[in-house]
Design a protein around this nucleic acid. Sequence first.
DNA 1: AAATCATTCAACTTATCGGTTGAGTAATTT
DNA 2: AAATTACTCAACCGATAAGTTGAATGATTT
Lengths: 113, 113
Amino acid sequence: MVELDDERLDAVFHALADSTRRTMLQLLAQGECSVGELGAPFRMSFAGASKHVKALERAGLVSRTVQGRAHVCRLEPAALASANAWLRYYEGFWSNHLDALEKELRREASRGK
Amino acid sequence: MVELDDERLDAVFHALADSTRRTMLQLLAQGECSVGELGAPFRMSFAGASKHVKALERAGLVSRTVQGRAHVCRLEPAALASANAWLRYYEGFWSNHLDALEKELRREASRGK
DNA sequence: AAATCATTCAACTTATCGGTTGAGTAATTT
DNA sequence: AAATTACTCAACCGATAAGTTGAATGATTT
């Protein structure tokens, strides 16, 4: 695992740092979607949604194929895995602190999150 | 896990989307550090580093205690865990695509990353 | 008490972000 | 052929980011 590509990680984490884009990924986890379908759930112009898709693509989280006039997108799990790999580095650390972790999660749960 | 706090996730992923801050977290994983120690490795003004620490704090990834004139920081694994929990949602998805994943990681490794 | 150290804060610059609108292109439908 | 659909691109806006510098604060050292 040595040293993950910094720019890739920047792009992936940046792409994930937006709730609209995270929701798009959740959509894509159910199956392929056109750019239009990805944008539809949001109160946002088409062009706006298209930009979000582009950010996901830039991060390598999503790829697209042009099928006629529709651009069909699919999830690229490899990029997600690189983020996961980075986080996993800390897994030992936080599992040594499980008490705090559990307390936090319970606190969030009881706040109804 | 229902629905993780969106703002928290925004802040956490945003904090992680910067190589300076990721390095700071790696430092903190080895033990507590003052703000000065955290900033020292970087070609950057003190105030600049201090801002990065603040971003980590805003995300809940780091907490600080003032000890005399030094501000001592430590890693807060709970926030990292919330990012991890989000990613884990996709674990099933990408483990169904393990071939692509492995190929990607090998490709990166052979590029000497 | 003066100097120094660890740090923040405020002000500023430049760049990027998230959104918009309006126009352009290419594929499909009528 | 004309209209519609699915999209991108370019230009713009306001907000935020990342960095700087310079001054302020508060704790320690001399």
